[in-house]
Design a protein around this nucleic acid. Structure first.
Lengths: 346, 346
DNA sequence: TCGTATACTGTGCACGAACACACTATAATT
DNA sequence: AATTATAGTGTGTTCGTGCACAGTATACGA
């Protein structure tokens, strides 16, 4: 069915008023007599008017700016991928007048607040941020809400009662998924020992790591008896002694960050230990192909960055509403299906 | 960096010629003196001109029609999902003047050719088709190429030397992925028996089923000794006697279509048999949650339909080139991560 | 020297929505 | 009655591109 697309001019003719009056009724700008309003509304009730978004955004063309508050990604391959997604979106969107302004912060220098303030001060049309620690962000969230600047937060735990969008994964479920996979890899379970390994300082945004831990533990607690779970923490780099001391009688290791390749490198003298980690960064993929990592859960940082920008620009260009929460599915990657995920575009 | 967006008018001023001349140079319409052409090209070399797609398509606004040659989906949940993806895309695209015209065919009645011919006769601006059997399609592919009608084929094996787009998955890899998962589920392997189950008539488009079979067999052949693989075929419905006779000493079943729920229902008296199937249709998800199906590989029919339409409409509206092949990643779904895939939008 | 064919160049309008502004009609004020 | 305020209208222009068409300049034949 080819349905005719009505324009405001069509409506004006049908209602026997001028284009201006139709415009005022549709966008309720006021200054319309009730008789004229009725005539227009009668026509609008009969036909299905959809404004032409192309014309709409051609006219209202401003150079929309999106501020990106982002960690200094060069040190972290995870953030590098996320950045690539953002860059990809930018490439596609310059033609619609979208421009990105980056405000990098160095997690170690604790200048997250400083960067965010600077971003807000420059009055962007929208903001995409990777929050450092959640409690530091509430003021910024409030401020952007007050100024009606749409804000998307990446990779952050959920928060109720906010018009801000949270984009990431359900980390608790992520832990449970890892656990189910681990269970099928290490069976039978009698006296099996499993390690959960965290990387990162507590001062940083690490609460999602503990959500993963909780999910992982809950799965084994509920369904598989006799599995012993032990948790160890590393800061940025690895302490080999500490790790090896903990590896005795271990059947599986679950690493809650993208750093699993650091662990995998130490496992050559401990064959048979099953490893589950996160993210398709180069080092992890190499280990997956060699068999030193068994499963990678994909957090899709590239897609997250891309989608975040797309949400904001669809709002700025087409006024499409932004959903409050966008949870990405948890991709399970093994040696045999990894190819499709490396190549895949979106 | 806020990069200025140049318009043809800007270029005209910089090159000290008229807008018309710039237009003629950029779109090589001829009728330009070499001196004027040089002036314009000099400016074009310095700046980065990107035409404004909004203005471009606002001008050339036609009611683009896309013909959909599609199996009568009511009988098959798989195609129903695919149809939903197409319908979703249509909803978003009416505003850009895209309208879809459906040409359904009933696989049993063998009226696929008839429907495709009818679609071609009505001269659509683009075609999306689900080929019935590949060899029946070559003539149609040639004809659409000849008439320069862009064509996207869903769920079809690859074909070289064609300007037609193939959208689907790598079915061989899909089989290997299933095999790796099966291997981790049924270990240890000594004298284990595994079943491959196909559904569907050979006259229909079933070649991808055999690609899956090949991949599955190859994995076990190369890596895991001592596993016995047996293949059985069913037409549309299941023959219980035939199935049960084949179930003795079977450790795992790999079903190459979305019909795994039919098998799962017969397995209540054979606990412990691992089942791997395809697609997130309701019946399969129920069995996954109950534990009678262990893994589902997601072929993402909804996304395939959606993306297919999006490719074509991006071409019609924005003249974006369509890639020749789009292979979707192979999603692995287990009980713990299934939620995120049901809810996920794109 | 005029006409005209040809090669080139510049201008104007269309697309559809948004908005500024000018205009009309009526009511309220002086 | 003349002026001013104000609610309510209609028109013109803008956005950037594509295309039709109207110009201009030069060369060439009559």
């Amino acid at each position: 069915m080819v349905t005719k697309r009505y324009t405001m001019r069509d409506i004006a003719e049908l209602a026997e008023v001028s284009r201006g009056t139709v415009d005022r009724v549709i966008n309720n700008r006021g200054m319309v007599s009730s008789s004229a309003r009725e005539k227009v509304e009668k026509v609008l009730g009969k036909i299905d008017y959809k404004p032409n978004l192309l014309a709409q955004s051609l006219k209202g063309h401003k150079n929309h700016s999106i501020a990106i508050v982002f960690p200094d990604y060069k040190t972290e391959p995870y953030w590098k991928q996320c950045f690539e997604g953002i860059a990809k979106a930018e490439l596609e969107l310059v033609q619609f007048g979208i421009s990105l302004i980056f405000y990098f912060y160095a997690p170690k220098k604790k200048n997250y607040e400083e960067s965010f303030s600077k971003a807000l001060k420059n009055k962007p049309n929208a903001i995409l941020a990777v929050p450092m620690e959640f409690k530091n962000s509430v003021d910024f969230i409030r401020e952007s809400e007050l100024k009606k600047i749409p804000l998307v937060l990446l990779n952050s735990p959920l928060q109720k009662n906010s018009s801000t969008t949270f984009l990431g994964q359900n980390y608790f479920k992520s832990g449970r998924t890892a656990a189910q996979l681990m269970a099928s890899l290490i069976q039978p379970f009698e006296n099996k020992k499993v390690l959960i390994v965290h990387f990162g300082r507590k001062s940083e945004n690490t609460s999602h790591l503990y959500d993963k831990e909780k999910g992982f533990k809950e799965y084994f607690h509920n369904s598989e008896q006799g599995v012993i779970i032990k948790v160890i923490n590393f800061e940025k780099s690895i302490n080999s002694l500490k790790l090896i001391k903990n590896l005795e009688n271990v059947s599986g290791i679950y690493i809650t960050t993208s750093k699993s390749y650091l662990i995998a490198e130490h496992l050559k003298m401990f064959p048979g230990i099953k490893v589950i980690g996160y993210d398709l960064i180069r080092e992890n993929i190499e280990n997956l192909n060699e068999g030193t990592i068994d499963v990678l859960l994909n957090q899709n940082p590239k897609k997250q960055g891309y989608k975040g920008i797309l949400f904001l620009s669809d709002f700025l260009i087409y006024k499409k509403p932004i959903p409050l929460v966008k949870l990405f599915p948890i991709d399970i990657i093994i040696k045999e299906n990894v190819d499709g995920f490396i190549k895949s575009e979106y």
